[in-house]
């Protein structure tokens, strides 16, 4: 559906986007993730024809941004970063203005659908500047979907909202994502994790990861960590390693009330929890807790964007 080829964008001497290549399939919900200033917005601005690439090209279906900007804009619904709105207009006037430019034949009917969709009942006649941030965001979304676009691009759609509003907007996005090709950019991982099929992580203008959430996790973490809380003698712990050979002991830390915190690590391909438990049963140890430390995508993200970001 959308194809980015060797995309480059320079701002003066600063290279904001550096040789990006990826493809977005029809119906896919893509999370475009990266720290602030990584080049997310710049890339989205090029797809939406606000900026022109310094080099490379973007194809949307069989159109490209260099030659078919007008046609591409018709296919895309776009919510820019910070959700700019004509705040002095009423919601009705604003959506009408957009609908007229989008040449929507039956505006009344479509407006009804969009109001229903975005939960804008009761605010249609109000000036946008009097609305809360959550409602403004809904108006921005309504603007983006009013022409029922095939492609929806949302640049940080939940930034600056409170947790309730975030949940509402997120539900709305999931709803919209069922029928559209959707790109959402964010610097907040959970947001993308909750909504997207696929995640592309960008850092310093380069793509550092691309795949489903599960793929990303498994690619970047091949060890499972197990945290045990035991009552046992500290010098007896290494006995465990003899019986369960594939385990590596990372640390043993005494805690209050004679408890020990033991951290073990083993290869992600095998599940050794059972073996470890079986062994503990044979001893006089008391097992209080056993936790598998799941590698969160958060770690992957931080790994990719902090440690590799030495430039």
């Amino acid at each position: 559906m959308i194809q980015l080829q060797n995309l480059v964008k320079d701002y003066g001497s600063l290279r904001a986007v550096d040789q990006i290549n990826f493809e977005i399939n029809e119906g896919e919900i893509l999370g475009f993730l990266g720290p602030n200033g990584a080049g997310k917005s710049t890339t989205l601005k090029m797809i939406t024809c606000y900026l022109t690439p310094t080099a490379g090209n973007i194809h949307v279906k069989d159109l490209n941004v260099l030659n078919n900007s007008q046609e591409i804009r018709k296919l895309i619904g776009y919510l820019p970063e910070n959700n700019p709105l004509y705040i002095e207009m009423t919601v009705y006037d604003y959506l009408k203005f957009i609908a007229e430019i989008r040449e929507i034949p039956d505006f009344k009917l479509r407006l009804k659908e969009v109001i229903e969709r975005c939960g804008l009942h009761g605010v249609v006649a109000k000036p946008i500047q009097t609305l809360s941030k959550g409602f403004k965001q809904r108006v921005g979304l309504a603007q983006a979907i009013i022409h029922d676009p095939k492609i929806l691009i949302l640049d940080e759609p939940t930034s600056g909202l409170d947790p309730n509003q975030i949940a509402e907007i997120r539900d709305l996005i999931i709803e919209l994502g069922r029928e559209k090709t959707l790109i959402i950019s964010s610097h907040i991982l959970q947001e993308v994790q909750a909504v997207c099929d696929r995640i592309v992580i960008i850092h310093n203008g380069k793509i550092v990861a691309d795949g489903s959430t599960e793929e990303l996790k498994s690619n970047f973490q091949n060890k499972t960590r197990l945290i045990l809380n035991l009552i046992a003698a500290e010098n007896e712990i290494p006995d465990l390693l003899v019986k369960v050979p594939d385990v590596k002991l990372l640390s043993v830390t005494p805690r209050a009330n004679d408890e020990l915190e033991v951290i073990l690590e083993y290869d992600v391909k095998q599940d050794l929890r059972k073996n470890i438990y079986e062994y503990i049963k044979t001893r006089e140890w008391i097992l209080l807790e056993m936790n598998r430390d799941r590698v969160s995508l958060e770690d992957v993200f931080r790994n990719l964007t902090v440690t590799q970001g030495g430039e």
Partner: peptide, 14 residues
């Protein structure tokens, strides 16, 4: 100043 230029110039307008 308000960023609406981005809205306007990404609509199918010349």
């Amino acid at each position: 100043n308000t960023g609406t230029i981005e809205l306007l110039t990404t609509l199918p307008l010349k």
